[in-house]
Amino acid sequence: MDFTEDQILRYSRHIILPEVGGKGQAKISTAKVFLVGAGGLGCPVGYFLTAAGVGKIAIIDDDHVELSNLQRQIAHSTKTLGMPKVQSAKETFNALNPEVEIVPLKQRLTKDNILGLISDYDIVVDGSDNFPTRYLVNDACVIAGKPLVSGAILRFEGQVTTILPHQGHCYRCLFEEMPPPGLVPSCQEAGVLGVLPGIVGGLQAMEVLKLIIGQGDVLKETLLIIDALKTTFRKVKVPKNPKCPVCGENPTITELLDYNAAYCSA
């Protein structure tokens, strides 16, 4: 791939790295990433992947920007209040790097549209804030064989894991079923310290870049647990479960289910 003079300047700190180089940057420039959510996690993930020069990024979210988002959702601003989040994010990302193709999808992700939507992308990133979406994305990625970088935040705790379907664990190997509604508080009820999604989203973006350039170790069969109050990072081994209902040897989930439950989705 031939870079323009501007691209050589923009990506020079990548090109210098032996693990990236011009060849790694060329891989980044042709990669396609599907981002679920333009909220606390989606903003930093999309922002850093745009800065890195990923070729194409789709973002799906059907919310509008609200004042209560701005304490942590760094792609939005006072100026974009009321705007669809995906549009607000696209404008911010393209101001940073106009070369990246941002595809804004202002809609809900459902069992009927997800496989079609992700089919053209190399890697899926889950930055959603609710369990039905988390399980829907997991099951769809296992069925479609797409790498998935999953992140979650609550109060001061964050989690990151990278799912390489059939090579490693999946979300259901870790937590087989969704918790019943009301058992786990949502971000809206529990709160979150505004920097935490930046840390978790930054780690997710790092996982994505390592998958693209094929360097280093990703969080395969591993759950990273971040305690921001104590400033601890803990890695927990998550073996692939041969009896997993979706990625196991005799899966019972072979097509997508109706994941709708009475969850708060803020």
Binding site: F3, I8, L9, S12, I15, I16, G21, G22
Partner: peptide, 8 residues
């Protein structure tokens, strides 16, 4: 940029 160009 001297090194970036040489490396490329």
């Amino acid at each position: 940029y001297t090194f970036v160009k040489s490396k490329l």
